[in-house]
Simulated assay, not measured.
Amino acid sequence: MYIFRRISVCLLFFVFYSNAQQETLKWHTEKNFSVQGKIQGDRTLPYRRFPAEMRSKVREPVWNLSTNSAGLYIDFYTNSPTIEVKYQVKGELAFPHMPATGVSGVDLYVLDKEEKWLWARGNYHFGDTISYKYRGFKADLADKLNYFRLYLPLYNSVKWLKIGIDSDTTFSKVDTDGKQKPIVVYGTSIAQGACASRAGMAWSNILERKLHRQVVNLGFSGNGRLEPEIIDFISDMNASVYVLDCMANFGSGKELGPEEAKRRLKQAVKDIRKKHPDTPILIVEHAGYSNGEVQPGRLHTYTVLNVATLEVFNELIHEKIPAIYLLKKEAIGLGIDSFVDGTHPNDFGMLQYAEAYYTKINEIEN
């Protein structure tokens, strides 16, 4: 009985302490910050990638994937030594080939005085409500406003989210949308972020930090298929570069073989050109599979698709379509250690993707 009482007292103390700690935090919602990384942000719900009118224009699987918050982020200033993030999501927390920290987790970075993004470790808990707690920042981050970036989940849909800071500290939002033309990426599950271990390790988010520029992530898993409705949507905004990285989704059959890939790719480029005569368009080859040298069927799948991609590129050049560029499989450089499941890259593969894009975009713009 004595031991039971001691345990009860300890539990009561823990609950009291936790509640008291919560009361010392000041919470901020989307009323206090801007969710960035999307097109037409003022017409789109905070944690969505498409505005509502797109629901009637695209296939249901595309719409459902568009509610995932891949590539979305929140920039804010605070001088708080403690940051806590709480939120709920709608889908599965984890996949067999991708951890909860990547599917459903957030990821926090801080910009240092040399303009370098540093990663912050958070203690996380996954349940009906997900929480990340960040504390113990180094001395030169204390007592001054610091620029933070919070990346949102790659493969889940956020219902609500709030950011807590110490009640005697400052929080202010950062608005960067519209200040620079973004890089717009239309792609597959790899573009969406599969299978990064955490949100910040999706290649589009790595590239964003390397370039210090917004990268809009329109990866739609297996449903990134160069569809005219999406091409029309991305053509409605002024991008600095349009990236078409959908080839991996044309090897699955379902009437989506190399010939259909060629037709859709060429039409997509021409449709963008109608509205944007000179904006660079980067066409990306299939990056391959890690088992291609062992299982010939897989080698054939990406080889014929890359032959088709190169044919379209050469045709566009022959037709004197301006500012068309090609990122080749060899430049991405994935190897047998770059994948989780032979199809989707691990963090090392994501770094290789980002580096290849970084090199190519610098080549295009300089």
Rank of each mutant, 00 (worst) to 15 (best):
N79K: 04
T303L: 06
A239G: 10
V35K: 03
S240A: 14
E260F: 03
N79P: 05
L299G: 14
L11D: 04
A199F: 04
N217F: 07
T29A: 10
G127R: 04
L161T: 02
R55Q: 15
L334Y: 07
K159V: 15
M237R: 11
V110S: 02
N366F: 13
V216K: 01
T359Y: 00
Y77G: 02
E330H: 10
S204E: 07
Y242I: 06
M237H: 10
V85E: 00
G102Q: 03
M237W: 03
N362W: 07
W63P: 05
N291V: 14
D128I: 11
E30I: 10
S204G: 13
V110G: 01
D42S: 13
K262G: 11
S69C: 06
T82W: 01
I321K: 11
G342P: 04
K179Q: 14
W63D: 09
L226C: 08
H125M: 00
R48I: 01
A70C: 11
W160T: 11
R59H: 12
V312P: 03
P296D: 13
P153I: 05
S338L: 07
T303I: 04
P81T: 04
G187A: 05
A331P: 00
D271I: 00
L310G: 11
D341T: 12
L316S: 07
K275E: 05
L305R: 09
Y17C: 13
T82S: 09
Y87E: 01
R43P: 00
P345C: 07
N68F: 12
D42Q: 14
E260S: 06
E311G: 10
R149Q: 08
N291K: 13
L45Q: 15
L161V: 06
K181S: 14
N306T: 11
E53T: 11
L145V: 02
I165L: 00
V62P: 02
L316Y: 06
H300V: 14
K90L: 13
W203I: 02
I130F: 00
S56F: 09
L310M: 12
S338C: 09
Y109R: 02
V312N: 05
G41R: 10
F33R: 01
K133I: 03
L299V: 04
G253D: 12
E60V: 08
Y17V: 15
S104I: 04
S34D: 11
Q22W: 10
I130E: 01
G41Y: 06
D278G: 07
V340C: 04
G349V: 11
E227L: 12
E229I: 02
R298H: 13
D107Y: 06
P296L: 10
V215Y: 03
G288R: 04
F313L: 09
F171Y: 08
I74D: 01
Y289K: 10
R298M: 11
E60Q: 10
T101D: 07
I324G: 08
S204D: 08
S80M: 00
Y357G: 07
N366P: 00
N68H: 12
I332G: 00
